[in-house]
Nucleic acid binder design. Structure first.
Lengths: 338, 338
DNA sequence: CTGTTAGCGCCTTCAG
DNA sequence: CTGAAGGCGCTAACAG
């Protein structure tokens, strides 16, 4: 069977109406009597007519599509955010498109790709956002919302979370358990959130009157392997009874490092993560961590984007969502403390 | 700055040539002197001209886009396959689009979405492929390749792996270690691969002259939680010294179940998975598992799809890739055996 | 409530 | 090697 292409003209001819009427019916607009509507719909059904996406876009100027770009597209982190976006956009008759690229770096190209009539708007998840890219988006006038950007202060509407407060809660939890010798493993250096989280640690230590010892602070990337490596170094300090980590993957890596050094978690060492990925609760032992409301972040971003696309001004263009500490099994009182 | 739209006409005017010439230059076709080419390219650069995707598609009939649909879009499993696809398509000047949907079920709708001029071809990852969907694709004449479909025997080119052989290797490995009391946890029932894998277990047991005891065979879905639950039941049988699982997530769930029942892995119980997701090697203890060549599966599928799109007939339309056993730390000789 | 006219931006003819 | 005319399929805008 040859690829059947059903055009609006065919439907119009069969139904004995004009193409315009078919268009109105198909798009659920006013302007068609019930009788006509029924007749048209019947023909549409019989012929299996669906409007051609390109033609529709070309003439209407809107695509009904939202593009999503994420650095590590298919991480659990991005996954949860994307689900939030999808939920919010579901009733808006919009479809989502993720752009996939082997090369995680070329953010600019990926924005470019989406910007030539493919989508009505863009959501960037944890983007690097070099100034040129921001400028490009602004010049194009492409509706865009940014979720958890590496740099703050970019001139685009953004959604972030209260990183500092989350880590402060985590650190205070350890202090309340009786820990005094608490280390910290930062996430990727080139991230504003990394600094914000670290500030939470410093704040909590200061408030408790505990010293912040630079020798007990290290930097990792956001990966398991990096967490393992960095923790292996940090744990040469046998006085440490707890470590706060800048991400769950780092925490899980650190946990395995501790184990390989013969230190049991949480008995010999308490560990806290950040993110609350699905893996955190499935880990052994289940990870105490700071939850980012990933789903809500996606929803908030999507809602803002729709507003922009529809020309409604944004009440606030900098949304900060709260973080919460989730207690599980990777933290306990240090040895010798009830 | 207002959204600047640069059309081919503007470029043509600025460069003092016809739109046709600009089109030829931009698309790298013959038919433009070097001088003209240079002049045009300079204007293109200065004005930041990029052809409008819809207009181009409407007139040329091709989009340069490949659509990907996966049931659980953002699993590690799909991730690896997608990366393979991306690698293969990179030099073909094609972009990938993933369709995202909150509702994992509506495969048909998602195919529909892509089929109206949005993409040149489709890759389905682990699709359910109900007959209607296959029929629709065939009627449309939409180039499509299927990777690891739930049902075999669909009339579309497909890529699968040798499931039976993988599990046979895994089971033989356990037998070689000295295990005799080996249980099996299947993956999702509604999957041909689930049965194929189970056959590998049965084959290996039979070859070794060991009985297959139905009471030692259970079914889970492909998730961690399901693996945990099912294993908890299966392990009431204290005679079991090893369990083969139909997927890595199930194996990881089973491992935690064993631990919560006070059985150490691998000392009291050996566990083998299937997939070799990134998590398998990061797990504690690292998971012995059967590797699916996910990356190669993606590449093979993409290569086949390009052939179809370009009108070259496929040499084979049923590709089966090999699986290999990866030995790690979750398997060991049973207690009492050197 | 329905039909007509025009054009979205590009590419495929066919001439020159 | 370059230009001019036409149309891809649909929808705005205006008639009737």
């Amino acid at each position: 069977m040859p690829p059947e292409k059903v055009t609006i003209a065919q439907v119009a001819a069969e139904a004995g109406v004009s193409a315009m009427t078919v268009s109105n019916v198909v798009n659920g607009r006013a302007g068609a009597s019930d009788a006509t509507r029924q007749r048209v719909l019947k023909v549409v059904e019989r012929l299996g007519y669906k409007p051609n996406a390109s033609a529709r876009t070309l003439s209407s100027g809107r695509t009904g599509l939202i593009g999503i770009i994420a650095l590590d597209l298919i991480s659990e982190y991005a996954h949860e955010i994307v689900r939030g976006i999808a939920v919010e956009l579901a009733d808006d008759e919009r479809e989502l498109l993720l752009n996939v690229s082997i090369d995680a770096i070329r953010e600019r190209e990926r924005v470019d790709f989406f910007s030539h009539g493919l989508v009505d708007g863009l959501i960037l998840i944890a983007p690097a956002l070099e100034p040129r890219t921001v400028e490009f988006i602004q010049d194009k006038g492409l509706p865009t919302v940014v979720i958890d950007p590496r740099r703050l202060g970019v001139g685009l509407p953004r959604v972030t979370v209260d990183n500092t407060d989350g880590v402060r809660q985590a650190t205070e939890h350890l202090i309340a358990l009786g820990h005094r010798e608490i280390g910290y493993i930062k996430g990727e250096e080139d991230h504003e959130s990394t600094e914000a989280r670290y500030r939470g640690y410093v704040d909590a230590m200061r408030i408790a009157g505990l010293p912040v010892d630079e020798a007990r602070v290290s930097s990792a990337s956001f990966s398991y392997a990096s967490g393992f490596r960095v923790a292996t170094g940090l744990l040469r300090d046998e006085g440490l009874t707890a470590v706060v980590c800048g991400s769950d993957l780092v925490a899980i890596g650190a946990m395995d490092a501790a184990r390989s050094l013969g230190r049991a978690v949480p008995d010999d060492l308490s560990i806290v993560g950040f993110d609350d990925l699905p893996r955190a609760s499935q880990n052994y032992p289940a990870l105490t961590t700071v939850r980012q409301p990933l789903h809500d972040m996606g929803q908030a971003g999507a809602r803002a984007l729709i507003s922009i696309i529809e020309g409604r001004p944004l009440a606030v263009d900098r949304m900060t969502l709260p973080t919460t500490l989730v207690l599980r099994d990777s933290t306990a009182a240090p040895r010798g403390v009830a």
